[in-house]
Amino acid sequence: MEKKIGIITFHRAHNFGAMLQAFALQQFLSINNEAEILDYRSKCIENYYYSPLRLKSMIKSVILGRDSISKLSLKIRRKKTFEKFQQKYLVCSQPYSSNNISEASKNYDLFITGSDQVWNASMVQDDLNYFLKFVNPENRFSYAASFGNNSILTYPAKEEMTELISTIKIPLIRENDGVEILKKLNATNYARAKVVCDPVFLLTKCEWEEKLGLKKKSSDYIFAFFVNDPIHSLDIAKSLHEKTGLSVKYCHSYGTEKNIPDWCEKLMDIGPRKFMETLNSAKYVVTTSFHGMALSIRLGKQFYYELNKNGTNSRLNTLAEIFDLHDREITDSNIPTCSEIDYQKVNEVLEKYSSYSKAVLLSSLEGIDYE
């Protein structure tokens, strides 16, 4: 029987991974159900991405010397490309805020929180709507929810967060570390928790190409994509550039233009679709991003990844462990010594991983604990 499903996630973040995973989960759920993304205007997202671009804030930022006119212009262009993607590709509900989101509970049969770091306490802070507080307990579900780090273990509201998570019959989480965090929280359902794939793996390479209308272009370049400032990754991109003669296209998830070398082509105001097209056509990918790594695997790219210096690496380590790709890790300024990725082997693992995750998700929505 078709269900109407409401998804709460970070769909308004001007972040490629956040928006693309939201798109992928909605697309998969819409095969046999009606799925909408709740157009939830959370303070954590609005304050980070939207408040700085209000006219008063921009004028103040220029006066205080925090931003230049050109930098603000870039931020505005990026905002428009993400909003355009959201309007064209995401099916969203009416806007909700923390003041009226309880009204959504009567419009859907069930709700899913995830994917992304919806249980990262340092990020969502006291917004318990990402823990589905506004939903009747029997209608609470999760998919590939991530804690991001251990901040929930010491957060003042951890008891209430734990109680809400415990009402989810079968918590579906994204990282191996998440199970340990549930155990440390004494969540009553931690033994039933299952690790599932990020939503970007729920769509095949062909489905990504078809649904977004990606044009296949020549692969005569290296795509350097960073979500954190790289330590050694840029050196690796340069070494590949010098070794292969391929050009380098540079993109930062947050539009940061700091210290970009002249030998890179800047792609700083592209949206999610153009990002996918660029990644899909690249010969090599060098990244510090979880979704940069995940989508490289999904699209069959030869890639190298660097862990983040801030220590939030459980997401990348989980992928490396599942696909046995630890040899792609960048640890210094030398290109990792490894053979090309055997995608016949990787795709066999990916097929099992995604098929299992799909089965677990669909079973959980029926209240069945898939084994």
Rank of each mutant, 00 (worst) to 15 (best):
D198M: 01
M123L: 15
K301P: 00
A121M: 10
G367H: 11
K88T: 09
S68C: 08
S364R: 04
D235R: 11
C206L: 15
V360K: 01
P52I: 10
D327G: 00
S218K: 15
L361I: 11
K274W: 00
S233G: 14
G17P: 02
Y108S: 09
R12F: 13
K71E: 15
N176A: 14
K194A: 15
D177M: 12
G255L: 04
T337V: 04
G114Q: 12
Q87T: 07
T288K: 01
P230Y: 01
Y96T: 01
N100P: 05
E2L: 14
A320V: 02
L172C: 09
L74P: 04
D262V: 13
N189K: 14
S51A: 11
L132V: 06
V360P: 01
N149F: 07
L182Y: 00
T167I: 04
Q344I: 10
F23Y: 07
K184M: 06
E46K: 06
G245V: 05
R54M: 10
L267I: 09
V200D: 00
T278F: 09
A145L: 05
K3S: 07
G65D: 02
E2I: 14
Y96S: 02
R140S: 06
G114M: 13
L72Q: 09
I31T: 13
N15M: 11
I335P: 06
I173C: 09
P95A: 06
L203P: 02
M276L: 12
V179G: 12
S253K: 01
E163Y: 09
N47R: 12
E209V: 15
L202R: 01
R66P: 01
E209T: 13
S219F: 14
K158D: 08
R54E: 15
L362Q: 10
E163H: 09
K301L: 04
K266G: 09
I168Q: 07
A144W: 06
I173K: 05
I236R: 12
P272F: 00
E34H: 14
S97I: 08
L20I: 03
A104D: 05
S253N: 13
D235P: 09
E242T: 08
S73L: 11
I368T: 06
N150F: 08
R54I: 11
V124S: 06
L172M: 14
D332V: 13
S357M: 04
D369P: 01
L362V: 14
T318L: 03
D126S: 10
N15P: 10
S314L: 11
S151C: 14
E265D: 12
D126F: 10
S105I: 03
T278W: 09
W208E: 01
Y356E: 02
S142E: 10
W208R: 03
I152K: 02
P261G: 10
